[in-house]
Amino acid sequence: MYTAEFDYKKASSLQDALSLLQQHPDAKLLAGGHSLIPAMKLRLAAPSLLIDISKVPELRGVRMEGNTLIIGAATTYHELETNDLVRKAAPLLTEVIPHIGDPMVRHRGTIGGSLSHADPAADLPAAMLALGAQMKIQGRSGSRVVDADQFFQGMFSTALGEGEILTEIHIPALSGRQAYEKFPHPASRYAVVGVAVVAGPEGVRAAVTGAGEHALRLSRLEQALAGKPLNAETIAAACQNLLSAEGLNHDLVASAEYRAHLVDVLAKRALLRLV
């Protein structure tokens, strides 16, 4: 399959990428390309220009600043799953990433690409919400930081505005014990439902992907467990009817009711691993 025609430019720096984006409002950013290129081959996307940001130095790598893990948006899944800083500061990511695609996909795909694409069945958005991550977004006039809770806004829709680039992901280091449980789609291995949980000193943070239009916090679960010890009884009591089936995704593989059921089951399994 061939994509529609496009021009291709390599951005040498973040400033370069931002000015190219400003000059060409219909351009798309290309990092790993593992969401964008398939969409272009199906002609679901036909940008006139691709701005390759995969080698932009400001967008790459992993570092700690104080108690915050900072991940450059164009860092690949493979780099993250083999990174010791990530393993120590956010083991949830080290657990979640091998669920994504396959080794070849993980060699190319990037964390920022996945989060900006905001596929409703992607694994990472649930992890970002459970970890309390923040997204650093750069525009021509400056940068801003957006909580993961405000970043995912709809199906394939985020807080990123026109001409803006997601540059970094900020994650509070080791905010608690962490686990991810997923029911994969039998063919695509995307999440039919995936639940990420983090149990820290301030309580449990939990989030789900695959169930709705975008990843979302399981606030009913968080509230049900507030101030309670985590044990088999409290978990079983809390993991009931976490989401109403109304408005949930439904397709050939799983009805909305089944997805709602999976949320309860997977949340329970994930939490039991933390006991």
Binding site: M1, H34, P38, S54, H107
Partner: peptide, 25 residues
């Protein structure tokens, strides 16, 4: 469609699906 892996090659020493990489990359 980036699924089957028949097009796998090594790009700078890493396995990739060459149907999902442009030659310019």
């Amino acid at each position: 469609t980036s699924q089957c892996g028949a097009c796998t090659v090594h790009l700078d020493g890493q396995a990739v699906k060459s149907c999902t990489v442009f030659a310019v990359q």
